[in-house]
Write a protein that binds this DNA or RNA. Structure first.
Length: 808
RNA sequence: GCUGGUGUGGCGGAACUGGCAGACGCCCGGGACUUAAAAUCCCGUUCUGGCAACAGAGUACCGGUUCGAUUCCGGUCACCAGCACCA
């Protein structure tokens, strides 16, 4: 008989809702556990199976911890600002707020249909003015501390979205959202000084329990490198050209210098006429400016550039005069935007030197610099380097750095790849930046009393191609009096990026209704930090890094109680389509969770999505394999329904150790996120109950249902009630296992001859080595195989195996 | 190019700290029940040879350490992800 999942699942979802079974209430005496998943962006497509995997996983953890007696906070909300909503709204001529409302309603229904144990009373929406009041408040605090600033600079511009992008959103030179090639534009932008936190964002990774690949990826993104800055004199103009290098030891090998096309000195030298071939240099500079980032990386191998005739630099180490070039292989945004070129020991410089016929000097012996650059730092010895000759690279680095410092020619320097965060978007559907610009006073933040600065209703919120926000057309909203001096002033019309609201939402969950503060101190002290945060790898260098930065800032100003927001971070693999390809509408391989629920129930979907494979790895969806999970539930239903108290139960030969082992295994597997093997263990136990019978008097059924309940909460709850157990399966204590019940009296021992398995014998668990070997040697098969051979060695691994080595 | 990861039956995947490879599930084959089918229950299911007992091979590939290697070491190949002229 199959169970009626539709009815049962609705019944218990309503029950949990009405009774607020999973509401989190602060109880200072109780141990808290804060489980967090990344709140969804409520897109028009509805919930995706990609959401179900991490959400189900953390729901299982939350449900288990609750049963362990911990005070669990497992909240949900909506990251509801964002471009797709705005684009949909423009296309269909509706207001983004209406679209958002509709999508959130739909998401809420879908999330509830999956039976997640969220505390719905704490749900937050980033588009709610009562919420984004505090997003704006944090921005103002950052402005006050000098961490938010406006600056004209080259930015990533997506010509399709008509919007600037953060570096993190423009990886690989294409727009993260729409895939269009990103171009460079000069624009005055709001920036957040995340670089000021670079060192701490890096160092504090050692204090948190993040999976290794997350740490590695953040470390690489922050990209710390230690070296020296070195100053070269330009005798023709009297300027100083400063470079950053990680190889100061190679200073004697510098044969030319390169500055980026955007370097300020180039502009200066062009204006002053110091550059003799101004036409050529200007042409090169313009061509570089026209290239998109994508084109720049495409042509990365072919070095191009132009020499700056009339400009030379003086090597501080040996006083030699060397030529200076501009080339776009030198980035304006890293280091000083200029390099000292050491073609003998840097691959890129070597390539450039070959194209331009520049001298290559060997200063570290060990390679052949005529064939290729020798970049090994470990083995080489300094040559052609004056007072550095004979030293190892590492010693030379120290010696030359000290020498530069003594002579005032340079010093030890640390550089980061991390760039400041472009924090403005020229779009409508985002948090307004609460700033007013006055000709006399500059940028003036709104006072807290005027927050939230609510997004005004506009007629037309289509993006402009000029790079102005749609809000700029709202003249009566834009034109205000300066808050300081009263003169005419203008509001900032750019809005915040999507990442703003999600950078602190986990703090709001602690106290979501607070109108006096982003959350009360008591609530934050009790609930934060987040104990366990699971989310996608795609957010590692975006949301995860951004929110760590905001949290550190909030910690610094005394709002957040801890230096790090998340104690533990785990990550799930993607679910692919049945064809092994990434799910997408165009491929037609998208699995809609709603359809699966309708067909086979939420409990089955939850089970399958956890059984599908290793949680951390990508896994293809398999419609057939879902059946196995459905069968498990039917078998449990029939086990407890039709066989209840029947003859099968009377057998009750299932050994107590099986039950105890399953309790241990399922509990440990949940903590290790090995959900697939936890479910396999449940399947095995059910198989055993079918074969041997379950003993209700021992509580076998109760234990099974309790273990099942985090995975398949609805059916567990229903059967719990049918069995007449008191309370709810969801809140009943997690079963305990008896340590003494885990091992057998008789254990199997593998018997090998020369490392090859020949047979298996059973011995008493407390048998000693002698007894086991005696048993092995008296085994009929072993006797036969051993005949006429001399036993030269026996290896005995207690409880595992015996390996016999024969001669002849 | 750099960084990280992965490679196990027809398929998804198991395997503690070097100790019985393939748990669990899907597919498939057989049986029971049924007038029949579906569902359900039971059995089998890495490959090769054999009716079978059994024998041999086998964890991407080549080699090494070891009584014993999916696991450790060296090398090769393939795939996935991230970064990418970061000086």
């Amino acid at each position: 008989m199959k169970y009626n999942f539709t009815e049962i699942e609705k019944k218990w979802q309503s029950y949990w809702d009405e009774h607020k079974t999973f509401a989190a209430t602060q109880e200072d005496s109780k141990e808290k556990f804060y489980a967090l998943i990344e709140f969804p962006y409520p897109s028009g497509d509805g919930l995706h199976v990609g959401h179900a995997r991490p959400y189900t996983a953390m729901d299982i953890v939350a449900r288990k911890r609750r049963k362990l007696g911990q005070n669990v906070l497992f909240p949900i909300g909506f990251d509801s600002f964002g471009l797709p909503t705005e684009n949909f709204a423009i296309k269909n001529k509706v207001h983004p707020a209406d679209v958002t409302k509709r999508n959130i309603t739909r998401f809420t229904e879908q999330l509830k249909a999956l039976g997640y144990s969220f505390d719905w009373d704490r749900a937050v929406e980033t588009t709610d003015p009562a919420y984004y009041k505090w997003t704006q408040w944090i921005f103002i605090k950052m402005f006050e501390k000098g961490l938010a600033y406006k600056q004209k600079m080259p930015v990533n511009w997506c010509p399709s979205c008509n919007c600037v992008l953060a570096n993190e959103e423009a990886q690989g030179g294409v727009c993260e959202r729409c895939g269009s090639p990103v171009v460079r534009r000069e624009k005055s932008q709001w920036m957040l000084k995340i670089t000021e936190y670079a060192e701490r964002l890096l160092d504090d990774l050692d204090t948190v329990d993040f999976i290794e690949r997350v740490k590695v990826q953040q470390k690489n993104w922050i990209g710390k490198s230690t070296g020296a800055s070195v100053t070269f004199a330009v005798p023709e103009t009297g300027d100083k050209l400063t470079v950053f290098t990680t190889r100061p030891d190679t200073l004697f090998g510098v044969t030319y210098m390169v500055v980026s096309p955007e370097h300020a000195l180039v502009e200066q030298w062009l204006t002053s006429g110091a550059i003799k071939n101004a036409q050529e240099v200007t042409a090169y500079r313009d061509a570089a400016a026209r290239k998109s980032d994508f084109e720049r990386t495409e042509t990365a191998k072919d070095k191009t550039g132009a020499s700056l005739d009339g400009i030379t630099a003086e090597n501080p180490a040996n006083g030699e005069k060397i030529p200076v070039f501009i080339s776009d292989y030198v980035l304006a945004t890293y280091g000083t935007g200029a390099i000292m070129a050491v073609p003998g020991h840097d691959t890129r410089d070597w390539e450039f030197a070959k194209v331009f016929g520049l001298p290559i000097i060997e200063v570290v012996a060990g390679g052949d610099v005529e064939k290729e650059a020798f970049t090994d730092c470990e083995t080489g010895q300094m040559v052609n380097s004056g007072f550095l000759n004979g030293l190892a690279v590492s010693q030379a680095k120290e010696k030359i750095t000290a020498w530069l410092e003594d002579g005032g020619l340079g010093h030890k320097t640390v550089n980061f790849k991390l760039r400041d965060w472009v924090f403005a978007r020229q779009r409508y559907w985002g948090e307004p930046i609460p700033m007013v610009y006055c000709e006399h006073c500059g940028y003036v933040p709104l006072p807290e009393s005027e927050l939230p600065l609510v997004l005004p209703q506009v007629e037309n919120y289509e993006p402009t191609t000029t790079g102005e926000s749609p809000l700029s057309k709202m003249t009566d909203w834009v034109n205000v009096k300066c808050l300081k001096c009263g003169h005419a002033a203008k509001r900032e019309t750019d809005t915040m990026p999507q990442w703003a609201g999600s950078s602190w939402y986990f703090l709001r969950y602690a106290d979501p209704k607070n109108s006096e503060a982003l959350a009360s101190k008591e609530a934050l002290d009790y609930w934060t930090p987040v104990d366990w945060y699971n989310g996608g790898m795609e957010h590692t260098t975006l949301h995860l890094l951004y929110s760590r930065f905001w949290h550190k800032f909030l910690y610094d100003i005394g709002v957040a109680p801890t230096a790090e927001p998340y104690k533990k971070r785990t990550s799930h693999g993607m679910i692919l389509g049945a064809d092994g390809q990434k799910m997408s509408k165009s491929r037609g391989n998208v699995v809609n969770p709603g359809e699966v629920i309708a067909e086979t129930g939420a409990d089955t979907l939850r089970l399958y999505i956890m059984f599908i494979g290793d949680f951390e790895k990508t896994a293809p969806w398999s419609p057939d394999a879902v059946k196995g999970c459905r069968r498990l539930l039917d078998r449990i239903w029939n086990l407890t329904e039709t066989r209840r108290g029947g003859d099968d139960f009377a057998l009750s030969k299932t050994h107590e150790k099986s039950v105890n082992r399953t309790i241990k295994k399922v509990g440990e597997d949940i903590e290790a996120m090995k959900f697939n093997t936890a479910i396999a263990a449940l399947m095995s136990l059910v198989n055993e109950f079918y074969g041997q019978g379950a003993d209700p008097s021992r509580g076998d059924i109760r234990t099974l249902l309790s273990l099942l309940s985090p995975f398949a909460p609805h059916i567990a709850e229903e059967l719990w009630q049918i069995q007449g157990f008191s309370g709810l399966a969801s809140t009943a204590p997690w079963p305990e296992y008896d340590e003494t019940m885990l091992s057998d009296n008789d254990i199997p021992i593998a018997v090998q001859i020369g490392g090859k398995l020949k047979t298996t014998i059973t011995v008493a668990a407390d048998a000693d080595e002698q007894a086991v070997i005696a048993a092995v040697l008296s085994d009929e098969k072993i006797t036969r195989l051993a005949e006429g051979k001399e036993l030269v060695r026996t290896i005995y691994v207690p409880g595992r195996l015996v390996n016999l080595i024969f001669k002849g």
